[in-house]
């Protein structure tokens, strides 16, 4: 554990709390992609199957349980409690374009041909693109509530912080995980456009609006 990873994880936790806060206080999941949230549940469930097989630390176990539970809770909020506020007609990204290639990539790049390793690898690739339906929706509507942009910023910061974490681990432990690093760089790259608008508009007190 190093500070980059720790603050990355904290940022990830923060993003989830911000999202739950947004949905429950506005009593609406408007502007949130159900598809992205469903992908996160898939990511956490397929990756954290090792909860039953390998113990890393109490921190690790608690975080894994939290990520699975909170992502399922968010789906519940969107699908049951605030269902009328969820508009599927603008959440139109085709999931098969994401899941299909991730299955193929996991079959090619993995650390072992067994179900746990294949699912782990799949979850890493899937996480790297899981935000796309959300970003696509943002692009389509051209604007976002400020709280939603804070959610995305916290999620992007979590990914960004994992990069110095890997650099640090390389020098301090000689540890390199090529699958995580490659997928992580792609994932962080997807946020660059968003961050540009976030820094130049939202943090200057303006509304998040994309140029027409």
């Amino acid at each position: 554990m190093n500070i980059f990873r720790f603050f990355g994880d904290l940022s990830h936790l923060a993003s989830i709390f911000i999202l739950i806060h947004k949905i429950t206080t506005t009593r609406s999941c408007r502007g949130i992609s159900f598809k992205t949230q469903a992908l996160y549940v898939t990511v956490f469930v397929t990756r954290y199957l090792d909860l039953f097989t390998s113990y890393v630390s109490l921190y690790n176990t608690v975080m894994k349980i939290f990520f699975i539970a909170s992502s399922c809770y968010i789906l519940y909020l969107m699908r049951v409690r605030y269902r009328p506020t969820n508009d599927p007609s603008i959440d139109t990204f085709r999931l098969e374009y994401l899941v299909g290639p991730c299955v193929v990539l996991a079959l090619i790049f993995n650390y072992g041909y067994n179900p746990t390793e294949l699912l782990w690898s799949f979850s890493i690739f899937l996480e790297s693109v899981a935000i796309l339906p959300q970003l696509f929706m943002l692009q389509r509507t051209g604007e976002a509530e400020t709280i939603t942009t804070h959610y995305l910023a916290a999620l992007g910061a979590y990914r960004a912080l994992y990069i110095p974490n890997w650099i640090y681990r390389y020098f301090s432990e000689g540890y390199v995980d090529p699958i995580s690093v490659t997928a992580g760089l792609v994932q962080t790259g997807l946020y660059l456009d968003f961050f540009y608008v976030y820094f130049t508009k939202v943090l200057q007190g303006q509304k998040f609006e994309l140029p027409a």
């Binding site: 990873r5 994880d9 990830h12 990756r47 090792d50 390998s54 890393v56 630390s57 690790n60 975080m63 894994k64 990520f67 650390y111 072992g112 390793e117 782990w120 994992y162 974490n165 540890y175 390199v176 995980d177 699958i179 995580s180």
Partner: peptide, 10 residues
């Protein structure tokens, strides 16, 4: 290999 020690990152 990363998986020998398990995947310790979240």
């Amino acid at each position: 290999r990363p998986s020998d020690s398990g995947h310790d990152e979240l």
